[in-house]
Simulated assay, not measured.
Amino acid sequence: MTDRAPERVLVAVNGSDSSREAIEYACRVFPDARLVAVHAVDPVDSGLHRMTTKGTAADYQDRYFQQRADAEAFLADYQAIAAERGVDLSVVLRSGSVVEVILAYAEEIDADQLVVGTRGGDRSRSERVRSPCVAERLVRRASIPVAAVV
Results as ranks from 00 to 15, higher is better:
residue 76 A to Q: 09
residue 134 V to M: 06
residue 46 S to E: 03
residue 17 D to C: 10
residue 102 I to D: 03
residue 79 Q to D: 04
residue 52 T to L: 14
residue 99 V to F: 01
residue 109 I to P: 00
residue 17 D to H: 12
residue 53 T to E: 14
residue 117 G to Y: 03
residue 120 G to H: 02
residue 144 I to C: 07
residue 11 V to P: 01
residue 102 I to Y: 01
residue 48 L to I: 13
residue 97 S to I: 07
residue 135 A to G: 03
residue 146 V to S: 04
residue 95 S to T: 15
residue 78 Y to A: 10
residue 59 D to V: 04
residue 71 A to S: 15
residue 37 A to Y: 02
residue 29 V to N: 03
residue 146 V to K: 01
residue 30 F to R: 04
residue 3 D to I: 10
residue 101 V to K: 02
residue 45 D to K: 10
residue 101 V to G: 01
residue 28 R to F: 09
residue 87 V to S: 05
residue 126 S to W: 13
residue 42 D to H: 01
residue 77 D to Q: 10
residue 141 R to C: 00
residue 62 D to N: 14
residue 66 Q to R: 13
residue 85 R to F: 10
residue 11 V to R: 01
residue 58 A to E: 14
residue 54 K to A: 15
residue 31 P to K: 03
residue 116 V to P: 04
residue 37 A to L: 05
residue 61 Q to D: 14
residue 134 V to N: 04
residue 102 I to E: 00
residue 77 D to T: 05
residue 131 S to E: 14
residue 7 E to Y: 04
residue 76 A to H: 05
residue 34 R to E: 15
residue 136 E to I: 01
residue 62 D to T: 12
residue 112 D to W: 04
residue 48 L to A: 15
residue 114 L to V: 06
residue 4 R to N: 07
residue 126 S to L: 14
residue 56 T to I: 13
residue 11 V to A: 02
residue 81 I to C: 11
residue 127 E to N: 07
residue 75 L to K: 02
residue 35 L to W: 03
residue 137 R to W: 02
residue 73 A to E: 09
residue 113 Q to W: 11
residue 112 D to T: 06
residue 123 R to V: 06
residue 40 A to D: 00
residue 39 H to V: 09
residue 103 L to I: 11
residue 34 R to T: 15
residue 121 G to V: 05
residue 145 P to W: 05
residue 105 Y to G: 07
residue 41 V to D: 02
residue 110 D to F: 07
residue 71 A to H: 09
residue 23 I to V: 15
residue 71 A to R: 08
residue 78 Y to K: 06
residue 36 V to D: 01
residue 144 I to R: 09
residue 39 H to M: 04
residue 91 V to L: 06
residue 112 D to H: 09
residue 57 A to T: 15
residue 150 V to P: 12
residue 17 D to M: 10
residue 95 S to A: 13
residue 29 V to K: 08
residue 84 E to P: 01
residue 108 E to N: 09
residue 79 Q to T: 05
residue 4 R to M: 06
residue 72 E to I: 09
residue 142 A to K: 01
residue 114 L to N: 04
residue 50 R to D: 10
residue 146 V to D: 03
residue 32 D to N: 12
residue 93 L to K: 07
